[in-house]
Design a protein around this nucleic acid. Structure first.
Length: 508
RNA sequence: GCGGGCAUAGUUUAGUGGUAAAACCUCUGCCUUCCAAGCAGAUGUCGACAGUUCGAUUCUGUCUGCCCGCACCA
């Protein structure tokens, strides 16, 4: 039975338990009761995460000619976030309906006073109407206003409605605006805003002038440092800047294990292209690249899908955004966002800093502000996807077996080395020699405790792809030992040279 | 942020107004020639803080965390 067939909740809890039990991932600050939205990666989790990071960096930066790396600081000048729109835009004012317990985004909740003009020309406000944003919000409100007039039996003619979203409402008006959920006034709260950026202070003085933010994304580093990189590295369009690093968002409700946490690690790449280049084709190429990459580290293609953001939901500076979705146990959710971001960010920084954000393009002999294609992904989300797709339970000779089928490239340990028996010194010596030889090049594990079958199962549970066992034939006959495959359980006899050659081939 | 449920060992669970147990895991020894064997032993637990009480893991409150639903999600 694969983990995918178990009930969603159980499957996720099982994976969370395993992660804890084997020291892969656990809650931050557990001895103090834990802290919501923060996680620690234990010895195995740290290896797994590092391997994912390294694989991405190797493929994205080292193995390409057109992408360079960057590590920008987590705390940047606060004006960076004014230019990027995060100081304003990361604030989502929300309105709650106390009665129905529903919550609405304030900028999507519209209202209008209903004003009737009497025969004598006097204007009377008979009440308020409200409606959520829809295909035709104005028509909805109009219909409700007419309804209200009819119900109250008001005489006179309706004045044309003045529609505004609820952020524009006066506090005394909030009390009179009906909740779109119940149709009755008096249950709405004033709009309350949540800024998702963590604030801190730089320097000893703690006042408004010392406020700084922990970055909510790594991308701005690439834009802010764009000019310096262009001036110092001889890059030519099209080219990319890649960065891996921590970002922080003060999420209202962190959920689903490490899927949505308050401190997370991003791998982002900004690919700069000529403004006249075929951005759509470039976007498509990156979509494909990212999907192929996920498959290359062992994520099954059938758990992946694309989600194209509808035009009306795009941020105003985005021409197109497509998310690569993954079928997590708790549902199909975003894994990797690939956005065509236009030249918005560079132009914003040019405007706010007063420094030109241009590059001289040899091909067209012109100075241009490039456009950007941005594949942005969370290391933690990839790790979760990897963990969920690697988890299997099967049966071996009537016993349940838990196995993590990690791709060898990202498995924490590549090989485990066992002496068949630990009370036979020649076996132990030979096993330890092999262990030391392997360790120079790979992360490997040595284990001599317990029955051999138990040792195999322990490695299965942490996803070690191969186990080798030194037996009497190894030391008395031909030097060969058995290598046992995690997924097929097959055993073969091979020599040390063959083992190294195989690892070179599978991991190189 | 709202509503509901939950919190006992690393994991899964039992249990009690008189400071707690099992299985698995882990560790040690014996044994063991390839898939969680056996025997002997060992480590380790009532989420936190108050209150009631002679005494609270148990009752009450607050907090924290986890799960589910709603809402939100760059």
């Amino acid at each position: 039975m694969s983990a995918q067939s178990a009930p969603a909740n159980d499957r996720m809890e099982t994976i969370v338990s395993l992660a804890k039990r084997r020291g892969i991932i656990f809650q931050s600050s557990e001895i103090y009761g834990g802290l919501n939205g923060f996680f620690d990666y234990g010895p195995l989790g740290a290896e797994l995460k590092r391997n994912i990071r390294n694989a991405w960096w190797e493929d994205m930066v080292h193995r390409r000619d057109d992408i360079v790396g960057l590590e920008s600081s987590i705390i940047m000048h606060p004006r960076v976030w004014e230019a990027s729109g995060h100081v304003e835009g990361f604030t989502d004012p929300m309105v709650d309906c106390r009665e129905s317990k529903q919550r609405f985004r304030a900028d999507q909740l519209f209202f209008a006073p209903v004003v009737v003009v009497g025969e004598d020309g006097a204007e009377t406000t008979i009440g308020y109407v409200s409606a959520l944003e829809s295909e035709d919000t104005a028509a909805d409100l109009q219909a409700r206003a007419e309804d209200l007039k009819r119900k109250l039996g008001a005489r006179g003619t309706l004045k044309p409605l003045v529609v505004a979203d609820i952020t524009a409402a006066h506090p005394e008006e909030i009390e009179k605006i009906p909740s779109p959920a119940t149709g009755k006034p008096g249950s709405l709260t004033p709009p309350r805003s949540f800024n998702l950026m963590f604030e801190t202070h730089v320097g000893a003085l703690r006042d408004a002038s010392s406020v700084a933010y922990l970055r909510p994304e790594t991308a701005q580093g690439m834009f802010v440092d764009f000019k310096t990189i262009v001036d110092t590295t001889r890059v030519k369009l099209p080219f990319g800047i890649a960065q891996i690093g921590k970002s922080f968002r003060n999420e209202i409700t962190p959920r689903n294990f490490i899927f949505c946490s308050r401190e997370f690690e991003q791998m982002e790449m900004e690919y700069f292209i000529h403004p006249d280049a075929d951005w759509f084709a470039c976007h498509e190429e990156w979509l494909q690249w990212c999907r192929d990459w996920l498959i290359s580290i062992g994520i099954p293609a059938d758990l992946l899908s694309f989600d194209e953001h509808p035009k009306e939901k795009l941020a105003f500076y985005s021409r197109r955004t497509v998310d690569i979705m993954f079928r997590y146990p708790f549902g199909v959710q975003e894994l990797w966002g690939i956005a065509a971001r236009s030249d918005y960010d560079l132009k914003q920084h040019a405007k706010h800093s007063g420094k030109p954000m241009e590059i001289f393009d040899e091909a067209t002999k012109s100075k241009v502000v490039p456009h950007v294609i941005e594949p942005a992904v969370g290391v933690d989300r990839i790790l979760l996807a990897v963990l969920c797709s690697a988890y299997y339970e099967d049966e071996v000779e009537g016993e349940k077996r838990t196995v993590l089928r990690f791709h060898p490239r990202i498995a924490p340990y590549k090989v485990a080395v066992f002496p068949l028996l630990k009370n036979k010194p020649p076996l132990v010596e030979r096993a330890q020699a092999l262990y030391r030889a392997l360790k120079r090049k790979y992360n490997v594990f040595y284990d001599e405790s317990g029955a051999i079958g138990r040792r195999y199962r322990r490695q299965d549970e942490i996803g070690t792809p191969w186990c080798v066992t030194i037996d009497f034939d190894t030391v008395e006959k031909d030097g060969t030992f058995t290598i046992r495959d995690r997924d097929t359980l097959e055993q073969q006899r091979i020599t040390e040279d063959q083992l190294f050659a195989m690892l070179e081939e599978k991991l190189g």
